[in-house]
C-alpha cells in the first residue's frame, strides 16, 4: 500500500491563508490504513483548524469529508454538487489523489495535507516500511523475493557494493539507523533456497524506461475497457 505521513500543521495553515471556506478531504484507501489521511485524520485536522480559527478570531467555515478513494473518478464525482461551497480543499490522499482532485476540480486550489512516502507494508501498528519502488519490471523471481531496487540505495543489480559491511549498508551512517544491505539479504535467502547459482551469471540489463526514466507511465487494458 501507499504510505504517507501528515504534514506539519504549520505548513497546512500557510497554504490556507486567505481562504474562507475550506474542505478537509480524507481518503479511505491506503492513507487510512497508515493512519495519515482517512476520515479519522480528516476529522482531527479539521477540528484543529477550527480551534486555530477560533483562537485567531476568524470566521472561516471548515468542514471535513472522506471519500472511498480519491484515485477513482466516480468517487471524486460525489463532490460535484458540494464543491461550490468551498474555496479550497486540503486533500489527505496520496499525491495521486491530490492530483486527480485538482484535475477534476480545476477551479479550486487543492492542497496536499500529507507527504506521500512509499509503497510499503505494516510491520506492526504504527510502523511502516518500504518494499517496492514500482520500477515496472519485477525481478523478485531472481532475487529470492527481496528487491534490490528498493533495498539498495545504488540499485545494484549483481551483488553488494564495497559499502556493505557486516550485512549493513553504508547509508546507515547517513540516516542514523541500521539499514540492511539488500544484497546481503538476497545472498542469505538464495543460499537457503539453494539458488546460489544465480550469482554465476550477471543479471540481464534492466529496462529503466519502464521505470521513471520513461516518463509518466500508462497501462491500457483493452480487454477490460468498456
Amino acid at each position: 500500500m501507499i504510505m504517507a505521513k501528515a504534514k506539519p500543521l504549520e505548513e497546512i495553515l500557510s497554504y490556507l491563508e486567505g481562504f474562507q471556506r475550506i474542505l478537509v478531504l480524507g481518503c479511505n484507501g491506503c492513507v487510512a490504513v497508515c493512519e495519515a489521511g482517512g476520515l479519522k485524520e480528516a476529522e482531527v485536522l479539521a477540528s484543529a483548524l477550527r480551534i486555530q480559527n477560533m483562537q485567531a478570531g476568524d470566521r472561516r467555515d471548515i468542514q471535513e469529508l472522506s471519500l472511498t478513494r480519491q484515485c477513482d473518478k466516480e468517487y471524486l464525482a460525489e463532490l460535484k454538487d458540494k464543491m461550490d461551497n468551498y474555496d479550497a480543499v486540503v486533500s489527505l490522499a496520496c499525491g495521486a489523489g491530490v492530483q486527480f482532485m485538482a484535475e477534476m476540480y480545476t477551479e479550486k486550489p487543492i492542497f496536499p495535507g500529507v507527504d506521500t512516502c512509499f509503497i510499503g507494508v505494516t510491520e506492526e501498528q504504527g510502523v511502516w516500511t518500504e518494499r517496492c519502488q514500482a520500477c515496472g519490471q519485477c525481478i523478485l523471481a531472481e532475487t529470492g523475493g527481496i528487491c534490490p531496487i528498493m533495498r539498495c540505495a545504488k540499485r545494484m543489480m549483481n551483488g553488494p557494493c564495497g559499502g556493505s559491511e557486516k550485512g549493513k549498508c553504508e547509508i546507515s551512517v547517513l540516516v542514523g539507523r541500521d539499514v540492511d544491505c539488500g544484497w546481503h539479504l538476497i545472498f542469505e535467502r538464495l543460499k537457503k533456497l539453494g539458488q546460489i547459482g544465480r550469482f554465476a551469471e550477471p543479471a540481464l540489463d534492466k529496462d529503466w524506461t519502464l521505470s521513471r526514466d520513461g516518463g509518466p507511465r500508462l497501462i491500457i487494458r483493452e480487454d477490460v475497457r468498456p
Binding site: 500543521l9 484543529a48 486555530q52 483562537q55
Partner: peptide
C-alpha cells in the same frame, strides 16, 4: 503537540 502547533 497538536495544540501547541496551532498556538494553544
Amino acid at each position: 503537540r497538536l495544540l501547541a502547533s496551532i498556538g494553544v
